[in-house]
Simulated assay, not measured.
Amino acid sequence: MRRFALVMLAAAPLAACGGSGSAPTNTAEPANAGDTIARIAAMNEGERNAVLFRAIRDAGRECQGVERSTAVPAVAGKPAWVATCDNDSHWLVAIGNDGIAAVAPVAGSPAPAAS
């Protein structure tokens, strides 16, 4: 799994779509490290989907929008969700309280079409 930071978590619902599709290699400390889990827990589903979308795109994965997300058991002690993208791909996103997200494809998920 690759690890990426969720930067500017509060601005995530306003994040624009797009990107080159290549995975970044750097991680950055989020602006408000330490309260990420509480902030995500307080979000409605649309806001949470925007955060998960940003994590998926930052990981270089194909997704133009998260249509729904479901909480799943914690992964390595980190809260986790399965996000379903508009292309019907499914991604497991585990987010630590430090704001670092780990993104991995869900086994059995259809592979997104090449662009």
Rank of each mutant, 00 (worst) to 15 (best):
A50M: 05
L6A: 04
D88V: 06
D86F: 07
A71M: 12
I95N: 07
A111V: 15
R2Y: 07
A83I: 04
A28Q: 12
E45R: 12
N26K: 13
W81M: 02
Q64E: 11
K78W: 09
F4R: 14
I95Y: 05
S115T: 15
S69P: 02
A94E: 05
A59Y: 03
G34H: 03
R68I: 11
G77S: 03
W81C: 08
P110M: 07
P105S: 10
G99D: 01
L14C: 05
D88A: 06
I95A: 04
A28Y: 12
A83C: 05
D35S: 14
M1D: 04
N87E: 00
P105D: 08
R54E: 07
G18V: 04
V72T: 06
L92S: 07
N97E: 11
A5E: 08
L52C: 02
A94N: 08
S115K: 15
A80R: 03
A16F: 04
L14P: 00
E62A: 13
R68T: 14
G21Q: 05
A28H: 14
S115D: 13
C17V: 10
P112V: 08
S109K: 01
F53D: 02
I56Q: 03
K78Y: 01
A41P: 12
P79W: 04
R3M: 09
E67Q: 11
N49F: 01
G60D: 09
P30M: 03
A31D: 09
H90E: 13
A15H: 05
A113N: 13
I56F: 00
P110H: 03
A94F: 06
E47Y: 07
A50N: 00
D35G: 15
T25W: 06
L92A: 03
A59S: 15
G77R: 05
N87K: 09
N49R: 06
N32A: 13
A74D: 14
A15P: 01
A74S: 14
N49E: 03
R2A: 12
I100H: 04
R39K: 15
R2K: 11
V7R: 10
S22I: 14
C17F: 03
V51S: 02
S69A: 10
A15T: 11
P105C: 09
S109D: 04
R54L: 07
A50L: 00
R48T: 05
M1V: 11
M8E: 14
G19P: 06
R2D: 09
D35K: 15
R68L: 10
P105A: 09
A114P: 09
T70R: 13
N26S: 14
E62F: 07
V72H: 04
W91D: 00
V51R: 02
T70C: 12
T27S: 12
V106Y: 03
N97R: 06
S69E: 06
A102S: 11
G65E: 10
G21S: 08
P105K: 04
G34I: 03
R57E: 10
L9G: 00
F53E: 06
N26Q: 12
L92I: 10
G65R: 07
E29H: 12
R54P: 00
A74R: 15
N97D: 13
P112M: 06
I100E: 01
V93Y: 01
D35E: 15
C17N: 11
G18M: 04
I37C: 13
G18W: 01
V103W: 00
S22N: 05
E45D: 13
A102E: 10
E67G: 11
